Amino acid sequence: MTSPNIYQQAVRDIYEAIAGEAAVKTIKAQYNAIIEGKTSTHEADLYWEFTDGDITYKAVIQAKEQVGLGELFTFLRTVRDIPGQVMGVIVTQPVYQKDIKDMAANAGIILYELIAPVVQDIWEPVISNIQINVDKSWVKAAKEKVGLGDEPVQMNANPKYTFIYDERGNCLDSVQGVFDSYSRRRAAAGTGLQTVVHTFAVPVFLQTNHELVPLIKLDNITFDLEFVNVNQMPGEDMLASILNNILRYFGH
């Protein structure tokens, strides 16, 4: 059995995403479809029929590694033989010929162009569920010392610009720098979700926006770290783009 190329896989991902599409109501979604036209039956990698509540739309989606004028004419005959508000979609590599692009646009055919990914997967870190935890007892004592009581002391909320200082006020790092150090370590160690609790060997402090308590002691930083493959093409994103193009073409 031959493995699907990225264009065939993209169509499969689009098909799987249809089940979760809530912006319109799906009437029919068929993979490796046989479609009844006005004069004959037609094969398609994916057939999607849906309604916005007023109008029923039909999308005929094909995967093609390359698109020439011959393939475009053949596909256009298929699309025009199907009754109703029909849009053709070809998932393919980038098309640079102006005549093909112009013909597709005039005929109501979407050229969904994908750039083939590099052989090696590219994994990017995703940081979430960030908690910057201060030493509460230290902060309470520091506030009482200057008579602040329960008055809140604000810190910078952006990790990139939240700097970490030692007791003498020397800048040691930033919160973003802590994230980056774990990202570098984990890049070659797998892609599963990990919850990190980062502690410090020596007392460290964060800068505040309060003149009476300019620094407060930091206890630890916790966050979730996960690596995602940036070469993966989410089917939901591709489906949303196709849906928007169909509705726009028919003047929705």
Rank of each mutant, 00 (worst) to 15 (best):
Y182V: 02
K217P: 02
G192W: 03
L111V: 01
P203T: 09
E236D: 13
V86E: 09
A116T: 14
C171T: 13
A157N: 10
D99P: 11
I242G: 12
A10N: 05
Q232R: 12
R184H: 08
T78R: 08
E71N: 06
A240E: 15
P4N: 11
R186H: 09
E211L: 07
S137H: 11
D52S: 00
L215I: 08
W48I: 00
T2W: 12
V86M: 10
W138M: 05
M238I: 05
S40W: 00
N209C: 07
V118Y: 07
Y96V: 15
L46M: 05
K64E: 15
L46Y: 08
I122P: 08
Q120D: 15
Q93W: 03
V119C: 08
K64H: 10
G88S: 06
Y249D: 05
D180K: 15
V24M: 11
Q85T: 14
E144I: 04
R185D: 00
D81S: 06
V197I: 06
I27W: 03
P203M: 10
G108D: 03
G177D: 11
I221S: 06
A157T: 10
Q194I: 10
T162P: 02
I246A: 08
I130L: 15
D13M: 07
D224R: 15
A33Y: 02
E144P: 00
L247I: 08
V202L: 12
N244E: 14
Q232V: 09
F179R: 05
A105F: 01
R185G: 07
V230P: 04
V139Y: 03
L239C: 13
L206V: 04
Q131A: 10
R168F: 07
Q194E: 10
Q131T: 07
P94T: 06
E124I: 06
L247A: 06
I14A: 11
D99A: 15
N220A: 04
A63D: 08
Y31I: 09
Q194H: 12
D54E: 14
I122L: 14
M103L: 11
D173Q: 09
T26L: 07
V175P: 06
F223M: 01
D173W: 05
K145A: 12
A22Y: 05
D150H: 07
H210V: 00
S174W: 02
Q131K: 13
I90S: 03
A59F: 02
I132F: 02
I34D: 04
